[in-house]
């Protein structure tokens, strides 16, 4: 049974390495001192600093507003796009739209960020809340399409025919038959767009300008200054929020679908097709 012990030891080691840095961060958020290398006593001090840091709180609010708004708009546009792709008659048009849809799914974040920066500057659009919001909408749309489209494709063709047969107009068919049937896909798309937005650093970093910041960008600029246990306190709170999100997604049955994992899935699907 020696083999068994070695393999379990290996797995245990992988899990320890995976979780150690996270718990290390959380542990030192309770440090009375100011460093991440010497724990001199328990305290809520850094949490108090965090909660009274009005700059940080306004950044959290900014981040949430951007996430909520961008995912909402991306869901609307993406759902319309999915309906459009579905109703495209020619296979070449359909595949062309799908390929264009996937460009932002596979492009590295720096490329998206840099090209959006050029784009906004080219148009003379000033950087800040507006540019960040537009960028988040832009990179969230393709995932909404990818979530909604399979649901539309699953719809039995006869269902739409039945609606027309029973006298519904095309608008009534859309709102009373098709949209209710694809609601799970729309919700999945919305939640995913929401996490995309919360998680993003690189694209925002390029298009944010000077006056506006989101959490990821703020953490980056503080981390560049060195250790700041207020960031640790923040990470504890974010860890709890992530945990709640994962539990929520787990209950929805799609826990493994944040942005990067979605890309892995896309790669898998491409290779397996």
């Amino acid at each position: 049974m020696k083999k068994w012990r070695i393999s379990n030891l290996y797995l245990a080691l992988v899990f320890i390495v995976l979780y150690l840095p996270i718990f290390y961060l959380i542990f030192y958020s309770f440090n009375v001192g100011d460093t991440m290398d010497h724990f001199s006593g328990f305290s809520w001090r850094h949490y108090a600093t965090l909660l009274s840091d009005s700059r940080m709180i306004s950044i959290v609010l900014n981040t949430l507003i951007i996430a909520l708004l961008s995912s909402l708009i991306a869901t609307i546009v993406g759902t319309m796009g999915a309906l459009g792709i579905y109703s495209a008659k020619k296979a070449t048009v359909k595949n062309g739209l799908l390929s264009l849809n996937n460009v932002l799914m596979v492009s590295p974040d720096v490329i998206i960020g840099a090209s959006f920066l050029i784009f906004f500057t080219f148009l003379g659009f000033s950087l800040g809340f507006g540019s960040v919001l537009l960028s988040h909408i832009a990179f969230s749309i393709p995932i909404v399409v990818l979530m909604v489209l399979p649901k539309i494709n699953e719809l039995p063709k006869t269902m739409v025919d039945a609606a027309y047969d029973l006298g519904a107009s095309s608008w009534q068919t859309l709102t009373k038959v098709i949209l209710p049937a694809i609601t799970p896909g729309i919700f999945a798309g919305y939640f995913m767009a929401f996490t995309y937005s919360l998680d993003d650093f690189a694209v925002t970093f390029f298009v944010t300008g000077n006056g506006f910041s989101t959490l990821s960008v703020e953490i980056y600029s503080r981390a560049r200054q060195g250790v700041d246990l207020e960031v640790n306190a923040l990470s504890t709170l974010m860890f709890i929020v992530s945990l709640l999100l994962v539990v929520g997604y787990y209950l929805l049955g799609r826990y493994n679908q944040n942005r990067r994992l979605q890309r892995v899935k896309a790669a898998e699907a491409k290779i397996n097709q």
Binding site: F15, L18, Y19, L20, P21, I22, Y24, L25, Y28, T35, M36, D37, H38, D199, F201, L215, S216, I219, Y220, A223, G226, V227, V231, L234, S235, M238, F239, S242, L243, L245, V246, Y250, Y255, N256, N258, R260, L261
Partner: peptide, 27 residues
């Protein structure tokens, strides 16, 4: 799921953790 869970933690926070872990007097 436990392997996937850490991917939900903000990338920058995980990176930041290593600044502490790897520092001159770090763990």
């Amino acid at each position: 799921l436990l392997i996937i869970l850490p991917t939900w933690i903000n990338l920058l926070l995980k990176t930041y953790a290593f600044i502490g872990l790897f520092s001159q007097n770090g763990s």
